[in-house]
Amino acid sequence: MQTAVITGVSRGLGRAIALTLTNHGVRVVGIARPSVELDGLVGEAGPLFTAIAADVADPDAMVRAAASTFAALGHVDLLVHNASTLGPVPLRPTLDITAQQLAQVFAVNVTGPHALTRRIAGAMALRGQGTVVAISSDAAVNAYEEWGPYSAAKASNDHLYRVLAAENPTVRFITVDPGEMDTAMHAAAIPEADVHTLRKPSQVAKALVTLLGHAETGVRYELEVSP
């Protein structure tokens, strides 16, 4: 693997994946909304990393980000859809979620990312190789109270990727449940959680890169992390 694109790269798992890959000598494009954290990552990750400031919820911005990406990398071996949103926090019962709020969660988790997938995976199909990963969640499988929008969006991606895998035999499409991690998103969802029981994003990023060595298309993986 020579090149990768990662969304939601400013913090948490996205940041850890970017750093893990650049440490492996992979040229990485990171997509995220502009922030101090994104600027900081540019310095930390070094010359193999290129930042593109864009909102994944905006399909047109994703088409433009794809053009920037190809200008920087030439081709893309790996696309990781890591950017995500819980929707309104504190989490609340699904009947308290408006249609607009639900649509915004799908925009960040499903529809905006699909605009980027279209542009990147089409070129992968022509080259006859490439991997697209979406970060999933156990909420995609289990019906946790108050996790309606997020879990529906994650379940939606799990199935979308199975269909993409069936349709495109030369490109790998997988989804990965990384387990519960010590991230800002987790703190927003479950502020009372004991962080010592949570996985570190850097451990999870390493396990994800290892998984990519043998993962099969159309599969939803639950990531195993060695302590």
Partner: peptide, 14 residues
Amino acid sequence: LQLDEVQTPYATRP
């Protein structure tokens, strides 16, 4: 026309 509508399916460098 939107930018996405004037791309080929396999487009790479702009």
